[in-house]
Design a protein around this nucleic acid. Sequence first.
DNA 1: CCGTACGAGTTGCATTTTGCAACCACGACG
DNA 2: CGTCGTGGTTGCAAAATGCAACTCGTACGG
Lengths: 156, 156
Amino acid sequence: MSADPDVTQGVVRELVNLSRRFRTNADRLHPELGFVDYSLLTQMAQPGGVRAGDLVHLTGLNKSTISRQLAALQRAGLVVRELHPQDNRVQLLRPSERGRQLLALANTRMEHEVSHRTHGWTSQEVDTFRTLLARYNAATSPAADPQENDRHRPGR
Amino acid sequence: MSADPDVTQGVVRELVNLSRRFRTNADRLHPELGFVDYSLLTQMAQPGGVRAGDLVHLTGLNKSTISRQLAALQRAGLVVRELHPQDNRVQLLRPSERGRQLLALANTRMEHEVSHRTHGWTSQEVDTFRTLLARYNAATSPAADPQENDRHRPGR
DNA sequence: CCGTACGAGTTGCATTTTGCAACCACGACG
DNA sequence: CGTCGTGGTTGCAAAATGCAACTCGTACGG
């Protein structure tokens, strides 16, 4: 069950290749929405929106970075910030209408890209791909296991 | 055969999640070797080494960026540059001994990470994962098809 | 009702990464 | 040789990011 070292090595290689290209590619697909912006918008498109702090945890970015990116997104009119009714320190974030549009557009392009790259695969295979990716993503990192809090671990 | 839109959407989502975290994670795993540096070293670890221009194509980064990263790697003593015997414009790159060591170390850590995340998978599944990733990576992008040259397409 | 501790964001400052355009050096070819 | 194309480098500017210090609320214990 535990995998063959060679295979694991291969997985590493492919994951690196994938990640190396993905951002660049994403920028090509939707220049008007940087990769990080896209991620942020996606998260806050969740019904109910998210809090800024959530984004810090979700992205692993420093809260100052998040703060600034959000400011930029707001300036660009892509997000709306409102205060949490029960706690004025907290801000609730959600994409603006235009934000949703851009997000949808970006998604369409990305889906097109994926469709293209999986052209010729059986739908069985595509589904397996998705499933395995999801499982991989859902797994915990050996280190960051214990509910990665804000705990001052030096960022990148 | 051509995949269900919902599934494709799922694949996009997972790919984004994967890519978003991967670099950050990589930096945590090997702080002494930035993600890009790691990629570059990996490429030039190929027997025979690579030319700087190859790295431009392989990474999609601007050649100026590559140039500088290489300069930094050299300053750090991780790569050796020699001139191509037949063409003095070209430089052949290969990791130094120390470069290889760091690369091996980083690889070990990454493999450990992957092993951990695929804990509990059957070796069959891990292998399928690798295969599908490889196929996905090998596929061409719809746009960048015609041998993506240096052609001034606005970067990100 | 204060005063202190804490939590969520923001801002000043420095560093890193990256793109683009101009430029330099070398090789190919008429 | 003179011109041109190719492989790299460098000047310059912009974007992304981290860290530490700071602001403004909230929560609690007297």
